[in-house]
Design a protein around this nucleic acid. Structure first.
Length: 429
RNA sequence: UCCUCGGUAGCUCAAUGGUAGAGCAAUCGGCUGUUAACCGAUGGGUUGGGGGUUCAAGUCCCUCCCGAGGAGCCA
């Protein structure tokens, strides 16, 4: 039975067997140092010529990087070993020899690494980032489970554009066009009337020809939707949510953040309460800083970066002009020109990680908005029904999981936060 | 879609318009505590494709392809 490398420190002095892949080899003629990765960690195995059979030594000589191997030996704590534990081998066997591994110990460009994404996953930084992603997804489910939300999986194939804004991927559905979902929100609202507090988490697709480090064609989004929740409650939920996730990453991913050389002190500052400005205040502060923006403009990337850079914590921006926001956002009762929407801008230049709003619950108003946005009324009949059969105020938000993970890991590009990124004109591997 | 930069050995990069190179990787040899091990030797090229200028093009011009970063849009 193989022992996971992660648990080796519990087996000091015992004979253990490890199965995995050869991460690196150094040899000095009659002693060899083999680094073996088994998925749970990497351990240094010391093989002395005099202490193993001729067959084992032949395998030591011929083993190549990333070959599948099996090592048996005695686990020993040793200061000289990376990780503090090493195995003094009594046997070593190559189970499957690897061809020349394309990714070597020296540096590579990202274009080359992306072309070999399926192999790049084996490197320590990529493994660390994907572990953080896994922890974030688990924490999301735990957060909502603890608060008695119900998971509602929204469809990926949809008959129409949800919001009528973004470009969608079109596919064929038995002879009629169908589209890959760009949001589960509209399908979540009816479920909120059934179950009160609901959320969905799944892949989302945008066919926009975005070519930046902050965009993917296929990304994962988590979207809660809550009946009888209004804007202030939504802001509080989003803040608790983000703090919960950051705490979990700090608690459970210390080793991964160290591999990624993340400055954790920046994350330790992410505690309640988050700063909050209205759209109007944000415009004034941008104008004060010399930016050429007027009331009614949407923020550009440089504006978001400026606003977020004023704070160590994420920044809420709320009450945008209704004209630049989605059709379903509830108007501000204080000023009908404003929509009760929020954005949450992450610090350190990681941009918008959350967008949300209180939804229109008045039937006539929503119908008028659909017409004003020149959306097909018939396609939204079911969505309007929610306002016919016992309407209720409700709110929700969407968080981009890759953007959140990118921020946690301190990465400079979204492509390293998802196992197989789909980017503009790139779908291999 | 637009703007900027780039494409030379398997990889990362050099090369005034004048003989295409280095480090790493690979292969072979040496070395009993290596930390991206080290030392010696060997093999490795349609300089992204096509066209043009020139005695001479990796280098200059045109064009197409591919890549990177940014803008717009958004999460």
């Amino acid at each position: 039975m193989a022992t996971p490398v992660r648990h080796l420190h519990q087996h000091d002095g015992e004979t253990v067997t490890v199965r995995g892949w050869l991460a690196n080899k150094r040899s000095s003629g009659k002693i060899a140092f083999l680094h073996v990765r088994d998925g749970s960690g990497t351990v240094q195995c010391v093989v002395s010529r005099a202490e193993v059979s001729d067959e084992a030594w032949e395998d030591v000589k011929r083993v190549t990087q990333e070959s599948t191997v099996r090592v048996t030996g005695i686990a020993r704590r040793d200061q000289r070993a990376p990780g503090g534990v090493e195995i003094h081998a009594t046997d070593f066997k190559v189970k499957a020899l690897s061809d020349d591994f394309p990714i070597t110990k020296k540096e590579h460009g990202t274009a080359f690494l992306m072309e070999h994404r399926h192999l790049w996953l084996r490197s320590s930084r990529q493994r660390a980032a994907l572990r953080v992603r896994s922890e974030v997804c688990q924490a999301i489910r735990d957060f909502f489970y603890e608060r008695e939300f119900t998971l509602i999986d929204s469809p990926i194939l949809t008959p129409t554009a949800c919001e009528g804004t973004s470009t969608l991927f079109q596919t064929d559905y038995f002879g009629t066009p169908a589209y890959l979902s760009q949001s589960g929100q509209l399908y979540l609202e009816p479920a909120a009337a059934a179950l009160g507090k609901v959320y969905c988490m799944g892949p989302t697709f945008r066919a926009e020809k975005s070519k930046t480090r902050r965009h993917l064609m296929e990304f994962w989004m988590v979207e809660p939707e809550v009946a009888f929740l209004e804007l202030d409650g939504l802001i509080q939920l989003a803040e608790e949510f983000v703090c919960y996730l950051v705490c979990r990453v700090l608690e459970r991913c210390r080793d991964e953040l160290a591999v990624l050389e993340r400055d954790v002190s920046r994350l330790e500052k992410i505690t309640p309460r988050f700063p909050h400005v209205t759209y109007g205040e944000a415009i004034e502060s941008l104008q004060g800083a010399g930016y050429d923006v007027r009331w009614g403009d949407d923020f550009g990337a440089e504006h978001e970066t400026f606003l977020a850079s004023q704070h160590d914590k994420p920044l809420f921006v709320s009450r945008f002009p209704a004209a630049i926001k989605a059709f379903y956002m509830q108007p501000d009762p204080q000023d009908e020109k404003l929509a009760l929407g929020i954005d949450l801008l992450a610090p350190e230049g990681y941009g918008e990680i959350i967008g949300g709003s209180q939804r229109i619950h008045d039937y006539e108003l929503l119908r008028r908005r659909i017409e004003e946005h020149q959306l097909p009324l018939e396609a939204f009949r079911w969505y309007l029904d929610i306002r016919r059969y016992g309407t209720f105020p409700h709110s929700g938000f969407g968080m981009g999981i890759e953007r959140f993970v990118c921020w946690m890991c301190g990465l400079s590009h979204l492509r390293e936060t998802i196992p197989y990124p789909r980017m503009l004109h790139k779908i291999y591997p």
